[in-house]
Design a protein around this nucleic acid. Structure first.
Lengths: 138, 138
DNA sequence: CTATTTACCTACCATTTCAGTAGGTGCAAA
DNA sequence: TTTGCACCTACTGAAATGGTAGGTAAATAG
């Protein structure tokens, strides 16, 4: 399995915020309750999204989170790359991969590159707006 | 990361057999040496391919492995599904997944299904023959 | 000024998976 | 009967996964 709960939960949180943040900031415990997820675990995931300017967090009463961008301008690939760190299907295509010696003669590398390209292409083509309830594609 | 060494090594072994089994059976220690892989580890992977009739093993002197099918008739997807058990990108699409309650109302399921479809479609479209040295696509 | 509410941070933990290794047994040919 | 091979089971160290525990920092309400 490629996408862990970190990435999947992050995506659900973002969609939830997109659908429920009509007025101001939404505290994470509301999202956690709606989605049936552990608040404590989400609290460890959200700083990743904040530091990448996908959402903004405000402390104190009346605070919470809201999206920094329009749902149509946030892609699924963006969220997953932040939370998963790397969505490469094999180790040799990961960001910090050790350089393979036989890279020029590797028979299997073209498949992995082809797979990687298709995965990223697809995930970048789907936006949060595409996943919202009122969208026709549903 | 989605594809572990089990699947990647299996693919390299199959391509190696396709390129080097001009005459009869190839002992696995030869493949292991050519590919720079642990023989002991490969010995644990190959029975999976045998039981799925992708390769045939013959004991004793002069024995080894050979492909049961033409390289053009073996897809990468086939090999990976056998060795990885499951190549679903998320847990809820795995073969033995626990049925999700909110499946009819899940905002994120369509992305995972779309991703799963594209991954399988691509991996099934690439054959071992496509990966061999003498192939133009290289 | 204090209490409350929220985000955010660090450390820990149980379980599972990964990537092998060790040490054999079974079978077939020379 | 010895050699070369496939094949089987049990074990292991390291890392990742999916959290929990127990705080601190900031903002607002009263």
């Amino acid at each position: 399995m490629m996408i862990s709960t970190r990435g999947r939960y992050a995506l659900r949180v973002i969609v939830d915020l997109a659908e429920n943040s009509v007025d101001g900031y939404v505290p994470m415990h509301e999202v956690a309750e709606r989605q049936g997820l552990s608040l404590k675990y989400l609290e460890r995931i959200l700083p990743l999204l904040v530091s990448d300017h996908l959402v903004e967090g405000v402390h104190g009463k009346g605070g919470g989170y809201r999206l920094s961008k329009d749902p149509a301008d946030i892609s699924v690939g963006e969220i997953l790359r932040i939370t998963e760190g790397d969505i490469a299907p094999v180790a040799c295509l990961e960001n910090n991969a050790v350089k393979c010696e036989h890279i020029d003669d590797c028979r299997t590398l073209p498949v992995w590159k082809g797979l990687n390209d298709r995965i990223n292409e697809y995930l970048d083509s789907v936006s949060i707006a595409d996943l919202m309830k009122d969208n026709q594609k549903q």
